[in-house]
């Protein structure tokens, strides 16, 4: 039992299980899953589908935080990728009455992801080459990026009239949401890279002590550039899923506050904000916790406004638990009580 409690994934799993349990007790139909319209259907499937973009962004954020970085521009990159994809796909009825996209779908998706990667690379260059603090370097793109997205869309909400594009955000494959498959695939690839290659070790080394890692021969600068670029790519994928889900791109509100949710998911999953220690599976659980929490608040009939307060309390609690000083204080208090008794 004690060894179980010490496992890195224990607390996030327990939190998620507790949330689901509360839902199951208060509303037994919450946990029900049925087969409808050729795919699985139910609250849980809905949570998985909605959590997918957050999972994807948070996976990128996990690696960035693991190398002592931070990327607060992911929300803006989501908006840019969504705008590029929506503009290039466009869609409408062609002369013969069939739906057609403006450019081939593969080209639109590829271009959007390419732009997102360039955004990530830009952040990486500012951090690695110009030596800026990560929060400042990515603040620049966070401020300007949404402006760029609005410039692309002309300040309008761009609607997509091309059903094949909808598959990403609301389609199903083998009974499960396509978005979930994408998130799962991404996690699997990262997990393999982190455990079967030296990448995981290098990232831990850089996060633990950048200077020591560099001296030991880790190509810290190159890896950091790759990590930031990947974070941009992940935000781009999330942008495609989000815009596909709502069948449009809104430069003003797409991905709003997503950077905060992503950081929260990473922290909830047990990744240390000080770098060096990271858990990809924990991050996935963290994203699920956030989405389940939102769903719980809706299903309990509590006004959704409370969501932000609950999230704030959650961040404070997790933050304090991660703080060595706080744990020491609690331990001292407990010992003093035990001593007095």
């Amino acid at each position: 039992m004690k060894r179980l409690a010490q496992h890195a994934l224990f607390w996030p799993s327990a939190t998620l299980a507790l949330l689901l349990l509360v839902n199951g007790v208060l509303n037994p139909s919450f946990l029900a899953i049925s087969w409808r319209d050729g795919h699985l259907f139910g609250n849980l499937i809905d949570i998985l589908n909605r959590a997918a973009p957050l999972m994807i962004v948070s996976l990128g954020m996990t690696l960035v935080i693991a190398i002592r970085g931070l990327d607060i521009s992911v929300g803006a990159v989501v908006a840019i990728a969504a705008a590029v994809a929506a503009l290039l796909v466009g869609g409408g009825f062609s002369a013969d009455g069939a739906v057609a996209s403006r450019y081939p779908l593969w080209f639109a998706l590829g271009a959007a992801l390419m732009v997102a990667m360039i955004c990530g690379l830009w952040n990486g260059l500012l951090v690695v080459k110009a030596g800026m603090q990560p929060i400042v370097a990515t603040l620049i793109l966070m401020v300007a990026g949404r402006g760029v997205a609005q410039l692309l869309t002309g300040g309008q909400i761009i609607t997509v009239y091309y059903p094949p594009y909808y598959v990403l955000g609301s389609g199903f494959l083998l009974g499960l949401p396509v978005a979930l498959w994408i998130a799962a695939l991404l996690w699997l690839v990262l997990q393999l890279l982190a455990t079967r290659t030296g990448l995981g070790l290098f990232i831990r080394a850089i996060g633990g002590n950048p200077e020591a890692a560099r001296v030991a021969g880790v190509r810290a600068a190159d890896i950091a550039l790759c990590v930031y670029t990947f974070c941009g790519l992940a935000a781009g994928v999330a942008g495609l899923i989000i815009s596909s889900n709502v069948k449009s791109a809104d430069a003003n509100s797409a991905g709003q506050l997503l950077e905060l949710d992503a950081i929260l998911a990473v922290v909830l999953g047990g990744t240390a904000l000080t770098g060096g220690r990271f858990s990809l599976a924990g991050t996935v659980l963290g994203a699920l916790i956030i989405q389940t929490l939102t769903a719980t608040i809706y299903s309990l009939g509590v006004p959704p406004e409370v969501n932000l307060v609950v999230k704030a309390v959650l961040v404070f609690a997790v933050m304090l638990l991660q703080s060595a000083e706080f744990r020491a204080l609690v331990l001292r208090t407990v010992r003093a009580r035990a001593g007095a008794a």
Binding site: L70, L273, V306, L308, A312, V313, M319, L320, E325
Partner: peptide
């Protein structure tokens, strides 16, 4: 007191104040 990152503490503060 707890050596927390100002960025994350004030981020939670932002959630809290907006939520209130």
């Amino acid at each position: 007191r707890f050596g927390l990152a100002p960025f994350i503490v004030t981020l939670a503060g932002m959630f809290l104040a907006r939520g209130c």
